[in-house]
């Protein structure tokens, strides 16, 4: 920014501040806020909405605008390490420099493509495995007698309350070359050489499935528990065998639970960082980890932002589907 622009801008700000301070500025602000709130259709109860609304706008939604903005900037060695998009030129024009080089870079370097696709693959497979393990569990829990049901539910929730990081860490001790599994197998003479499991894709799958399994079980359980048992009795009464009743009654009715659970696993798994960082090898490329490395190791904020935008583009549809589902659930609860 040129010196001249600084000065003019500074003068204007001073003039403006003077004006405000001369008036009864606090009352002024209050009136503005009131007018603003009324404009937005907020009165009395409106404040109840306004406070969390503004918080989430400021700290959840607006930050994405900055990610977008910085993804279009250039990396420089400075503090903060990126160039400004908007500059005041000598003759007080605004000069907007949009730099799509970061995106072109992502497209050209196949490291990013591989990481991107690999993340989707890992997330999809993990979701499928979670569903495969979680569905029978949720089903048996929902069919267990009520006294047991609460105990089982608590057992599913308990790991969720303990540290995620430490639970991932536990797998290092189990999977590594002199870890629990290899020690047991060696002790029984089943293998002679330790099996390499740590720092492989396998370890990442195990970690993700393990960490996200409760997220699959809980919505499925909530759905299956609501299932009206008389429907199954009616099916049996009409001559339907239990297996068939499961596929023609229980399964179709539990689809909302399946979708909710799958999205709860899939979406965060795509951007997962901790699990590939701790359990995966150097060649386990996942996009969340790439973002992290760009940011922390390379200090390239613009490329990290571009990666974030790329992840968001991929996830925006699943996230919207998930929201529709949540909203529907909430409405159903109200009715």
């Amino acid at each position: 920014m040129s010196r001249k622009a600084y000065i003019t801008l500074g003068d204007r700000i001073t003039a403006a501040t003077d004006l405000v301070s001369q008036s009864s500025w606090w009352g002024q602000i209050q009136t503005w806020v009131e007018v603003l709130l009324t404009r937005l259709g907020l009165r009395g109860q409106g404040l109840v909405v306004a406070i969390p609304y503004l918080w989430l706008l400021l700290f959840f939604l607006i930050p994405f605008a900055f990610v977008l903005k910085i993804s279009l900037a250039e990396a420089v060695i400075a503090r903060p390490p990126y160039t400004a998009l908007i500059e005041w030129t000598e003759d007080a024009f605004i000069d907007i420099k949009l730099n799509i080089a970061n995106y072109l870079f992502l497209l050209q370097d196949d490291l990013y493509w591989k990481a991107y696709l690999n993340s989707v693959k890992v997330a999809l497979i993990s979701t499928a495995v979670c569903l495969f393990i979680g569905y029978p569990m949720a089903y048996s829990m929902a069919r267990a007698n009520p006294a047991w049901r609460n105990v089982l539910l608590m057992l599913v929730i308990l790991p969720f309350w303990t540290s995620f990081l430490l639970r991932v860490y536990a797998w290092i001790g189990i999977l590594k070359n002199n870890g629990v599994i290899n020690n047991i197998l060696l002790a029984f003479g089943i293998i002679d050489e330790p099996i390499v499991m740590m720092q492989t894709n396998f370890a990442v799958y195990v970690g993700i499935v393990y960490s996200y399994l409760p997220f699959m079980i809980l919505p499925l359980y909530a759905n299956l528990e609501r299932l009206d048992n008389t429907l199954l009795e009616a099916a049996a009464d009409l001559g339907c065998r239990p297996i068939k009743a499961f596929f023609s009654i229980t399964l179709p009715l539990s689809i909302p639970g399946i979708i909710a659970g799958s999205l709860l696993v899939f979406i965060p798994a795509v951007g997962e960082f901790v699990i590939p960082a701790l359990l995966g090898g150097p060649d386990t490329l996942m996009i969340g980890r790439v973002l992290w490395d760009e940011f922390f190791a390379n200090r390239d904020w613009p490329v990290a932002s571009a990666v974030a935008i790329a992840i968001l583009l991929l996830l925006i549809i699943p996230i919207m589907v998930f929201q529709r589902f949540q909203a529907k659930e909430a409405e159903a609860g109200t009715a």
């Binding site: 959840f60 990610v67 965060p268 932002s305 996230i319």
Partner: peptide, 19 residues
């Protein structure tokens, strides 16, 4: 508001953190 309340539940942490 519904969107801003549900999205953080699934938003990958690296994105929230960076933004």
């Amino acid at each position: 508001l519904t969107g801003m309340v549900t999205a953080p539940l699934v938003m990958p942490e690296v994105i929230t953190g960076l933004s």
